[in-house]
């Protein structure tokens, strides 16, 4: 099984982060200091970040609500965005709970999205709709699609589940692959390229509304327990800046304005809330359960 994140030891994490930052920094030449008039906001595929209209709605609302120019920055993998965030090349980012927990010491929560009024979501194990599968063991020997090696719902939860059930992580699936997008996991399963996949429950449900034909070709084999919704985080050193304060206010008040509601409607979210880091304790437990395995 592929894996890019192993143990959460500080030395290794720091090394990887530094290496990635060095690579990204040399390539993109982001300034190390915050611009006064701009909020650099990183996005990951925790939501449908390839929807241009959605990105436009986020930009419109946040620029209006914060008074700052919003510079949306997307990268292919979670690791790239996390690295930029931790290194200070982003003011804030919408990241997954798994990297937030991994870099908890360097990061601080700004806000947590509310889905159906709660800051919670699930991981889904999905398979082709015409397949007779209702439990994890039915997926043995599959080619399995993960979203991202730094994704909680799209990787960590399933790996932990396989492990908890006493199956060999390397041998349970015939082969695993990463699509670097929850949407792509659904596409891979729906097309038959793979037999099963691990996907963000929130993305699967939203996709069911906006692309019902695609999602109808898949079915849920298993839903996980509830995890803290992927949060908006910032590096600790920017936590008290005016930009982050303005961003936090804007996110928390998003349901109060038309532009904010338009953004929330696109995201199928009910709002944003302040949350404690304990919201992600279950993610921590999963990481812990895989200590020595990942």
């Amino acid at each position: 099984m592929s894996s890019s994140c192993g143990r959460t030891g500080a030395n290794r994490r720091t090394f990887l982060l530094s290496l990635t930052t060095l690579m990204l920094g040399s390539k993109n030449a982001f300034p190390q200091t915050q611009k006064d008039e701009t909020i650099r906001f990183g996005l990951t595929p925790v939501f449908l970040n390839d929807d241009v209209q959605l990105l436009s709605a986020i930009t419109t609302y946040l620029e209006g609500a914060t008074g700052y120019k919003i510079d949306l920055i997307t990268r292919r993998t979670y690791q790239e965005v996390t690295s930029l965030l931790v290194s200070g090349q982003l003011d804030a980012a919408w990241i997954c709970g798994y990297p937030f927990v991994k870099y908890r010491s360097e990061l601080e929560l700004v806000a947590v999205p509310l889905w159906n009024g709660k800051p919670l979501y699930q991981s889904y194990l999905i398979a082709k709709s015409d397949r007779d599968a209702s439990r994890l063991s039915d997926l043995r020997g599959d080619i399995h699609a993960f979203s991202d090696p730094d994704s909680n719902s799209g990787y960590l939860v399933t790996v932990a589940l396989v492990n908890e059930n006493g199956f060999g992580r390397e041998t349970f699936f015939k082969k695993t692959l990463f699509t670097y997008s929850h949407r792509n996991v659904i596409r891979a399963v729906a097309s038959g390229l793979v037999q099963s996949g691990s996907v963000d429950g929130y993305v699967w449900e939203v996709m069911r509304e906006i692309d019902p034909d695609l999602v109808a070709r898949t079915k849920i084999v298993r839903k996980s327990e509830w995890f803290g919704f992927p949060p908006i985080a910032t590096s600790k050193r920017f936590a008290q800046t005016d930009q982050i304060k303005a961003l936090k206010r804007a996110l928390l008040a998003s349901s109060d304005t038309d532009a904010g509601r338009a953004m929330l409607d696109y995201l199928r979210l009910s709002g944003f809330a302040v949350a404690d880091t304990s919201l992600f304790d279950l993610v921590s437990q999963k990481i812990e359960s895989l200590r020595g395995v990942l």
Partner: peptide
């Protein structure tokens, strides 16, 4: 041997 990338 990245099946997804080839498919995509």
């Amino acid at each position: 041997r990245d099946n997804w990338e080839i498919y995509d």
